[in-house]
């Protein structure tokens, strides 16, 4: 029994812990969205749900020894200056500055994290913020006309007047 648990831990949980964390977060968020009575608590659940999805995407783009997907020139500074001293006649430094040394420098793709999930999640964050903002505005309107944010109290108010 212990061996089964240990091997399950070793094969399915430890190397894939990111998926476990995201699923647990997502379940918390979804549960709050479905069952909570208070409208704001539902929205908090929504925010958790969306954060879980962001976690999934971003964790997919991780590479073991990689850095952020920005090509840094700090490490090669000496090299760059050296190259520039050699060809003093090179005009338009500003524009060819970055490109000139790229010719003799191949980018190792395993040194950079996958940029695409970051871009996708920037979009998803923006969408999440917008949805949250609009939902808060709608819940303010609900509060303004019903005087409460508890779903059951609102439904009680509606029942006499043609509740469906």
């Amino acid at each position: 029994m212990d061996i089964i648990i240990a091997s399950f831990l070793e094969d399915s949980i430890v190397p894939k812990f990111n998926y476990w964390i995201y699923v647990i977060l997502m379940m918390i968020g979804l549960y709050a969205m479905i069952t909570k009575n208070n409208l704001i608590k539902k929205l908090i659940g929504m925010a958790i749900f969306q954060t879980a999805i962001i976690l999934l995407y971003v964790s997919v783009g991780v590479k073991a020894d990689a850095n952020i997907p920005i090509i840094s020139h700090h490490g090669e500074k000496d090299h760059v200056e050296h190259a520039q001293n050699e060809n003093l006649d090179s005009a338009s430094e500003a524009s060819s500055h970055h490109g000139s040394k790229k010719e003799h420098h191949v980018i190792d793709k395993n040194k950079f994290a996958n940029p695409l999930p970051h871009v996708l999640m920037l979009t998803a964050i923006v969408v999440g913020v917008s949805t949250l903002g609009l939902a808060l505005a709608i819940s303010q309107k609900v509060h303004g006309s019903f005087g409460t944010l508890e779903e059951d109290e609102i439904l009680d108010q509606l029942r006499p007047g043609g509740y469906d």
Partner: peptide
């Protein structure tokens, strides 16, 4: 979805409540 949430919630108070439910279901 966002435009329809806003367009629906422009109605009366029942519309705002229905729009809120739509936000929750639509986001799921």
């Amino acid at each position: 979805s966002l435009t329809s949430y806003a367009l629906i919630a422009m109605g009366n108070r029942r519309a705002a409540l229905s729009s809120f439910n739509y936000v929750i279901m639509g986001t799921i």
